[in-house]
Simulated scan of single mutants.
Amino acid sequence: MGTIQYGTGDEIHIDDRALAHLKVVIATKLRRNESFTLSWKHPEGDPIGRSTIWLHPSIPLRFTFDEPEAPQLNTQWIQQLMQSASSSGGISLVDEVLDTPEL
């Protein structure tokens, strides 16, 4: 379980694989000097519910991963997250989109 440390707030716990994909999307948006929201459901063990934060290039941000090796990234999932990041609702952390072979 990785974490996002944002500003002076608490750590946000997110699965390492999902966090690796989010990092690409968040870094891309912030590099473009774009602000947006990030929403997620609380993981098991945390209080039930969901949260949203406003991400802005001027606020400190740190990604911490439990796994020492970066996973292979799924470009479809990154594209889906990028589309949601550009929407008025911001990024909603959704389950990974898996490639399925056509029959």
Rank of each mutant, 00 (worst) to 15 (best):
I78K: 08
P47S: 10
G49K: 01
H42A: 15
Q72G: 07
E67L: 08
L19V: 05
L73Y: 09
F63K: 07
M82L: 14
D15P: 03
L19F: 00
E44H: 11
L19R: 07
D16T: 03
E69V: 11
F63C: 07
I26N: 00
T52V: 14
N74T: 09
G45H: 00
K41C: 10
P71H: 03
R17P: 00
D16V: 08
H42R: 12
R32V: 00
T52M: 11
F63I: 06
T52L: 04
I53R: 08
V24H: 08
I78M: 05
F36M: 05
I78L: 07
F65W: 04
F63M: 07
S51T: 12
I59D: 02
S39M: 08
A18E: 11
K29G: 08
N33S: 14
A20G: 00
F65E: 10
N74W: 06
W40Q: 06
P43Y: 04
L38N: 02
P47I: 04
V25P: 05
T37N: 11
A20P: 02
A20D: 07
P47E: 13
P71V: 00
H56A: 11
I59H: 01
R17Y: 15
W77V: 02
L73F: 08
E44T: 10
D15F: 04
D15Y: 03
A20W: 05
L30E: 05
Q80C: 12
T28A: 14
D16Q: 02
F36T: 00
L30K: 05
Q76L: 15
Q80R: 15
N33T: 01
P57H: 06
P71L: 02
S35N: 07
P60W: 01
A18N: 03
S58G: 10
E44R: 11
L30T: 07
E67W: 03
W40C: 09
Q76F: 13
R50F: 14
L38M: 10
R31L: 12
R17H: 10
D66C: 09
H21A: 06
V25D: 02
K23D: 06
T75R: 11
Q72Y: 09
E69M: 11
E34G: 02
T52Q: 13
A27H: 09
L22S: 05
I53W: 03
W77Y: 15
A18Y: 08
T37A: 11
E34S: 08
D66W: 03
F65M: 04
R31P: 01
P57I: 03
L81G: 09
E67S: 12
P71S: 04
I26T: 05
Q76A: 13
T64E: 13
P47F: 10
A20R: 06
N74L: 06
L73D: 11
L22R: 05
S58L: 08
D16A: 03
S35A: 12
A27W: 01
T75H: 09
A27M: 12
T52W: 03
S58Q: 14
A18L: 13
T52S: 13
R31S: 15
W40P: 05
L61N: 02
A20T: 00
A18F: 05
D46E: 15
I26F: 03
E67V: 07
R50V: 00
Q76S: 14
T28I: 04
Q79S: 12
G45V: 03
F63V: 08
T64A: 15
M82S: 12
D16N: 07
M82N: 14
L38R: 03
G49N: 07
V24A: 09
A27I: 01
L55E: 03
E44C: 04
A70Y: 00
G45Q: 06
F36I: 04
E69R: 06
D16C: 00
S39H: 13
